[in-house]
Design a protein around this nucleic acid. Structure first.
Length: 931
DNA sequence: ACTGATGCGTC
DNA sequence: GTCGGAC
DNA sequence: GTCCGACGACGCATCAGT
């Protein structure tokens, strides 16, 4: 008879062929595309469909003999036909003709028909090698329809309780099986990424499925989540507070399945044959001998023998049955010692002798912060801070000054902490040794990490004095440590050694938000006040240094004059004030000038050009990133708006800039630019925040988005600062520069009336630019300020009428109001409301208070900070652009969304449609293609 | 190798 | 980037 | 006017988990 051996896979020695081996072999049959079956063999026999699935999962080169089902072919003298196995799409059984004998190897199979796999076929054979995963009588599955009914009921009930149903099933096969059943029941399936990918591949292979959406953390409510089993108890699911999880697996028949998988329910829907079908299959094939494989192989072989059929289990040593425990696929079901959580006996709080807090410098700092926060008047805040700063020594002063701007490091300091809310909350919880529930109660009550720290840690730490310099070292250590886990532990151990008040301020600094009504501007004032220096000088020094700590030092020594503009030290850029209309901009220039000119301009714009009344400079407003370029000799540096060095992100610009013939600092905008092709800000973003180690090995980095530097100002020329030179003259000198490739100068136009501004604005839009900049030609360059000399004119693309479907509590001072609204458009084909964006911006406090009341009374499902609400509030939302996105279920997202108005006159039925939103998105890109 | 979560910096 | 609010 | 705070979307890097 045909020789059958087994060693991590079935081996047919005469044919020198492996069937589903675990390890890579020279020549093998691969029954289906589950990942544990697709080792990188040299040469394989597969079904055509499995071959295509494998291409997607394991790209690479190998010799493939891809057979259609039923096709008889000879491969290396192996005479073979493949039959569908019914396990998953493409899964095949292997039917071998060997001389006058036949052999059928099932691979994984099932007999009951499924929606996503071909129906299994069979042939009689002398030898049958079959998988017997469920080879015990207790694994008899109820009819599929009945199980599906149970699953649907489970989902419905869960949804009715305002919770999210989660179904766990393998991403290839099982998940697709569940998909359609849900849709037929009127439920919307939402697929985990891996499930989604697999389903897409199925579709490419010609299978069709019902409607589904990809997993999106913001849009889970009301959906049925389908995840691979590995996702259970993962962070992804932890984020969903109110959920019920069900395992979809043949193992669900086990009475303790719910306990074993730690789920709320388990349903026996399987891609494998159950016990009945295994027996039935043996009857159909009428083999002379049977080899069993996987699962309860020994048990099933024994059952067959009792029925008079020769049967042997294939195990590691190709030995016959012997005990060997069996349940190979199961996580051990035995004596699971539930890890008792050893609780620390509480009671360490309070009595521990501690150093007086007055010795802690950091406590003094925090204390001043508290007093500043309590003071309502700005001047009083400034005075409090000034008094404090004066008491500090050389080492402490710069540190405290920086902390009071809400930063751990100076602005010009590129270090980052990589510590955000997630790490902070975990560290606080651990330091306070509070239970999840208790901690969440405290955290929910605040919505402010700092306040949470105070309440959570009060009385639960062992405070030690904390010097300001120590704190400085601590932040640096935090910066240098790698990975959230290490950072969490570092922070935890530090918090445990601080008083609650100090911890609160450490957390405030970490979040970058002091929330005491004071930032850079008032710190500057405090420095000026405290060290009796003119505010202007302090501001100027600060803007030149980009370091409030260093500024404070200079001020304390009366050496502010030593801060000078110097090349390769970036300065803040001058900002523009937004205006909604050309008229408003024009007003700005006319008002305050002599009354005669004002009259003239209103009465008849034509006089303006004739007289010497206002002339303004106009430039297109480009949609890129603000950049400041310094060049001297061979050295070039580029800085972003936040004074970060971005030279490495744009090496080709830096290289080209060496070819300027002068030493200079220019201000401008880097845009994604390629002749004849419309590039957008999103293209440009692909080049930001990127590390480009070694990228300069390759000139140009071919894959990069091409960019151009549009210069619009000149701040430094041949050793001289031009900050105090009028724009008119700066512009003039700019015109005299020779430009390297990839550098352009923004064209200046001038206008003498509102209507000219409006006209130019329209032209700028036609040139596909964001809008228009309007500048006073006589103005000097004021770094870091949004003065009345530069204006920007942008207009919304359109507005949408949308309906609010969810509301969320705000943070900080908005902690107790529902200030954050998720809104939706209507999908006209299904009638569904699909979220398209979020916003609160644009409403007054009174309106927010109103809406908060309304939404509290019209809540459909309350998930803590987040609640779904009755869709009865219609908003008019403005935005600057609209583009495809996976962020919201509508598949679109808005750029710079803001609420224009609450449309009490409208109801859900009159909101805009998804189709309309799509048209807006399409219009924009079409125009782009044309020009 | 892949997905998802988080943090950061750009607008 | 957006916006409203406080001084 | 100016500053402050409370918010939007996106893309990249990094890490965790499997």
């Amino acid at each position: 008879m045909i020789d059958v051996q087994y060693q991590r896979g079935v081996y047919l020695s005469h044919e020198d062929l492996w069937l589903d081996p675990w390890d890579a072999k020279r020549f093998a049959f691969v029954s289906h595309a589950h990942s544990d079956h697709i080792a990188p063999h040299d040469e394989i026999i597969v079904s055509k469909r499995t071959a295509r699935l494998m291409q997607a999962r394991l790209p690479g080169t190998r010799i493939e003999h891809a057979l259609s089902f039923g096709e008889r072919r000879t491969v290396h003298d192996v005479d073979v036909t493949l039959l569908p196995a019914g396990h998953i799409f493409g899964s095949a059984q292997f039917f071998l003709f060997a001389r006058d004998e036949t052999l059928l190897y099932t691979g994984d199979f099932k007999l009951r028909p499924g929606k996503s796999a071909e129906r299994a076929e069979w042939r009689e054979a002398d030898t049958l090698i079959m998988e017997t995963t469920f080879g015990l009588p207790r694994y008899r599955f109820p009819p599929t329809e009945q199980v599906i009914d149970q699953i649907v009921t489970f989902c419905r009930e869960t949804l009715d309780d305002g919770q999210v149903p989660v179904l766990l099933g393998y991403s290839l096969g099982k998940a697709q099986e569940i998909l359609c059943s849900l849709d037929e029941a009127g439920l919307t399936p939402m697929l985990h990424g891996s499930v989604y990918q697999m389903t897409r591949i199925y579709e490419q292979l010609g299978q069709s499925f019902c409607k589904y959406v990809r997993y999106n953390v913001n849009d889970v409510a009301g959906k049925v989540l389908i995840c691979p089993p590995s996702a259970n108890r993962s962070r992804m699911l932890e984020k969903i507070p109110h959920k019920r999880v069900a395992m979809i697996s043949g193992w669900a028949t086990d009475p303790n399945a719910v306990y074993r998988y730690q789920v709320d329910a388990a349903f026996p829907l399987s891609d494998h044959a159950d016990y009945n079908d295994l027996l039935r299959y043996v009857d159909l094939v009428r083999p002379r001998r049977v080899f069993t494989l996987h699962g309860f192989a020994a048990e099933f072989a024994r059952d067959l023998r009792e029925r008079g059929i020769e049967a042997w289990a294939l195990t590691e040593e190709n030995q016959m049955e012997l005990s060997l425990g069996s349940a190979g696929m199961l996580p051990e079901a035995s004596g699971k010692t539930r890890g008792e959580v050893v609780r620390q006996s509480a009671g360490q709080s309070g009595q521990h002798a501690r150093a007086p807090q007055s010795e802690s410098e950091f406590f003094a700092f925090a204390h001043v912060g508290e007093r500043i926060g309590a003071a309502a008047a700005k001047l009083q805040k400034v005075r409090l801070l000034a008094d404090y700063l004066r008491t500090l020594g050389q080492e402490q002063l710069p540190i405290a000054a920086i902390y009071f701007t809400g930063r751990a490091f100076a602005q010009s300091d590129p270090r980052t902490l990589q510590v955000g809310g997630s790490i902070i909350y975990r560290a606080m919880m651990a330091a306070a040794k509070l239970s999840d529930a208790e901690f969440h109660r405290i955290a929910h009550g605040h919505g402010d990490a700092g306040k949470t720290a105070f309440e959570a840690l009060e009385g639960r730490t062992n405070p030690e004095p904390f010097a300001l310099e120590e704190s400085c070292n601590f932040f640096d250590t935090l910066h240098r440590s790698r990975g959230p886990i290490a950072k969490t532990e570092l922070l935890r151990s530090r918090l445990a050694k601080l008083s609650a008040r100090e911890a609160q301020y450490v957390v405030k600094i970490l979040t970058g938000d002091l929330r005491i009504g004071l930032r850079e501007g008032l710190v500057e004032e405090a420095i000026a006040h405290g060290f009796e220096m003119p505010l202007d000088q302090v501001k100027e020094a600060h803007m030149l240094l980009g370091d409030i700590g260093a500024t404070a030092m200079l001020a304390s020594r009366k050496e502010l004059h030593r801060a000078e503009l110097s090349i390769f030290r970036p300065i803040k850029c001058m900002l523009a004030t937004p205006e909604p209309t050309a008229e408003a901009v024009w007003e700005r220039f006319v008002e305050g000038k002599d009354p005669a000119a004002q009259l003239l301009s209103v009465a008849a714009a034509t006089y303006d050009a004739a007289g010497n009344a206002a002339t303004v400079y106009l430039e297109d407003k480009f949609d890129g990133i603000r950049a400041q370029l310094h060049r001297s000799g061979q050295r070039v540096e580029i800085f972003s708006r936040d004074l970060r060095r971005i030279t490495d992100q744009f090496p080709e610009l830096a290289r080209q800039a060496r070819n300027f013939e002068k030493e200079l600092i220019v201000d401008g905008e880097i845009i994604a630019y390629e002749q004849g092709r419309r590039l957008t800000f999103f293209d440009l973003q692909k080049r930001l925040g990127r590390k480009s180690d070694g990228a300069d090995l390759f000139d140009g980095v071919a894959a990069d988005v091409p960019v151009a530097f549009i210069i619009f100002d000149l701040l430094w020329l041949n050793g001289r600062s031009l900050l105090k030179t009028p724009l008119r003259e700066r512009r003039g000198r700019l015109g005299g520069l020779r430009l390297p490739p990839q550098f352009q100068i923004a064209e200046v136009m001038s206008a003498h009336s509102a209507s000219e501004i409006e006209q130019t604005f329209q032209q700028a839009r036609r040139r596909l630019n964001e809008g228009l900049m309007i500048k006073d030609p006589e103005s000097v360059y004021l770094p870091g300020t949004r003065g009345m000399f530069w204006f920007k004119l942008k207009k919304e693309l359109a507005t949408l009428d949308v309906v609010v479907v969810a509301a969320e509590l705000g943070h900080g001072k908005r902690n107790n109001v529902l200030s954050d609204y998720t809104f939706a458009v209507r999908d006209e084909t299904t009638g569904e409301l699909l979220p398209i964006g979020k916003a609160y911006s644009g409403l007054t406090d009174a309106e927010i208070a109103d809406l908060t009341e309304h939404f509290k009374q019209n809540t459909i499902a309350d998930h803590g900070r987040y609640r779904e609400v009755n869709p009865d509030i219609v908003l008019e939302v403005a935005f600057n652009s609209i583009q495809p996105s996976t962020r919201h279920a509508s598949g679109l997202a808005l750029r710079f969304p803001r609420i224009k108005a609450i449309r009490r006159d409208k109801n859900v039925d009159s909101i805009d449609t998804l189709e309309y939103a799509r048209q807006l998105a399409a219009q924009r890109s079409e125009v782009g293609v044309l020009e």
